[in-house]
Simulated assay, not measured.
Amino acid sequence: MSTSQLPQHPIEAHLSNLGSRWLLVLERTLPNSPQEIWAALTQKDLVRRWAPFDPDRDLTETGFVALPEAGAGAADDRDDADDTDESIGTIVTVAPQRMLSLVWGGDALDIELAPTASATIVRLSHTFDDRENASSYAAGWHLCLTALDGVASGLDVPRMVGEDAKLHGWDALQEKYEDLFSR
């Protein structure tokens, strides 16, 4: 499948200064039910198709979870000694079909679902330390949410994280988000 066949989303995000941290929020309306999106958000084999990490288990229960960066090796094959901050996550909230919250690499990620009559609003909030990373994170999450949209719709979505993100327009997205945040 080519990227042109993937769902398209606007360059849209909000960046807020929280004092010592930053909050990036991307909101997308996806044409899927909360049940379809929840499955893509929590079933490890589906998460691997859209997220920047490869979980070692389904994301359906709170607690620790291995979340190595996508492409760092299959979760089942990696060395158990991979205990870097980026590879260890904590699932904080699991509210089926409403909210998934986790901490990954020291950053808080909240994904909220709000059903409408014919779609679901997905709101991804990422709290992080360094303002310099804002446009990079926004570009990455833009691609991840595009892939989530495709996965939830049953499409065969190409890998769009890590180095593969550059093949799907990450550089241009990063520039557009930097421009958006500099206004």
Rank of each mutant, 00 (worst) to 15 (best):
L30Y: 07
A70V: 07
S4I: 12
A139C: 02
W104E: 00
A172I: 00
E69F: 10
L67I: 01
L6W: 04
A66W: 07
L124W: 09
L46T: 03
L41K: 09
T29S: 14
E175R: 11
I91G: 10
F64K: 12
W38R: 11
D83V: 14
L46P: 01
E36P: 00
L6K: 09
D54S: 12
S101C: 10
S153T: 08
H126R: 06
I11V: 03
E86T: 13
A75M: 11
E112F: 03
A72S: 13
R123A: 09
W50P: 01
A72H: 00
V65L: 08
L102Y: 10
I88N: 12
E12T: 13
D56R: 08
F64G: 11
R123Y: 05
Q35N: 09
A138Y: 02
G154Q: 07
G169T: 06
E112K: 14
T60P: 02
W50F: 03
S125D: 01
L18W: 08
T116M: 04
D79L: 07
Y137V: 04
R21Y: 11
N133V: 00
T90K: 14
D107H: 12
R49C: 10
A95K: 08
S4N: 12
L23F: 05
D110W: 00
L30T: 03
E132S: 12
T127F: 01
L124P: 00
E12K: 15
L102E: 00
D82K: 15
P7N: 04
T120Q: 05
S4F: 12
D179K: 11
E163A: 15
A81T: 13
Q5V: 01
H126I: 00
E69H: 00
A134S: 06
S118R: 11
W38Y: 02
L155V: 05
P115V: 08
F64V: 10
D85T: 09
R159T: 10
G150P: 07
G169R: 04
I121K: 08
S33Y: 02
A152C: 11
E12S: 15
A40M: 06
P96N: 07
L143Y: 01
D82G: 10
N32E: 11
G105L: 05
T93E: 14
H142P: 01
R123H: 02
Y177V: 09
D129R: 15
T62K: 08
G162T: 06
W50E: 01
S182Q: 12
Q174M: 05
L23C: 07
T84K: 13
T120G: 04
A13H: 01
I121R: 09
S20P: 05
V92N: 13
G150T: 05
D149N: 11
S118N: 07
E12H: 14
A147S: 05
D56E: 00
R159V: 13
M1I: 08
T116S: 13
I111Y: 05
D149S: 08
S87Q: 10
C144A: 11
M1Q: 12
L124F: 09
A134T: 04
G140L: 06
A147T: 08
H9R: 14
A95F: 02
V161K: 06
A51M: 12
L67K: 06
H14E: 15
A172T: 08
P34N: 04
A81E: 15
T127S: 12
L30G: 00
T29E: 14
L145S: 05
T60G: 11
W170D: 08
R49F: 01
A139R: 04
D156W: 09
E132L: 04
C144Y: 01
K44H: 13
D85N: 13
V94N: 06
L15V: 05
F64S: 12
